[in-house]
Amino acid sequence: MKKKWYDALWIASLAYLALGFFNILFAWLGLLCFFIPLFIAVAKGTKGYCNRYCGRGQLLSLLGGRLGLSRKRDIPRWMRSKVFRYGFLVFFFVMFFQMLWNTYLVFAGAQDLGQVVTLLWTFKVPWQWAYHGTVFHAGVAQFAFGFYGVMLTSTVLGLITMALFKPRSWCVYCPMGTMTQLICRAKNGKPFREESH
């Protein structure tokens, strides 16, 4: 099958993770991974981002598939259930808004900048070596630390489930994937159609 330019977006995904080790402010670029899928889902009513442009999915595919870092087992039934998928989406949202709240507190001067990246919503990893000051408000950096934590956490989860199950197991419970599918359902209805024989 002929490769397209977007098949190389895993490089962008890898570069994003790497840049966060040098300057945390690059974490802002990750917003593209939030807004582009939503824009495609709302404007076109498709999951075009997941289907074509998701660099993380490609990276997991590469590591778990071509590099053989996946056991390639079936994901447990409960992990693909709607209860888990929607539950994880809600949990993800709650944690995301908590991160936004922390950013707000720094902007409001009620809290100092925390130069840590919170991994798996629990472990506060010192990350001061990737912060070299900013010409903007400290809140801008606080958002970067928080958002990079979100991105790194989801990557770690993706890598764990890649190793345990199939390479792109993350896609099953990815909050963006679940959310864009919900948008598509709201936009397109639920027209189950007969498969052609």
Binding site: M1, A41, G45, T46, K47, G48, C50, N51, R52, G57, S61, R80, R85, R168, C171, V172, G177, T178, T180, Q181, I183, C184, R185, N188, K190, P191, F192, R193, E195, S196, H197
Partner: peptide, 29 residues
Amino acid sequence: CVACGCCVKVCPVGALEVFRGLYASVSGD
């Protein structure tokens, strides 16, 4: 189906598509 499109990418004959971001659909022909 989570409509991720992984199946579409590996199908050697292009028999699958993701229908309106909802689910994958197979062309039986």
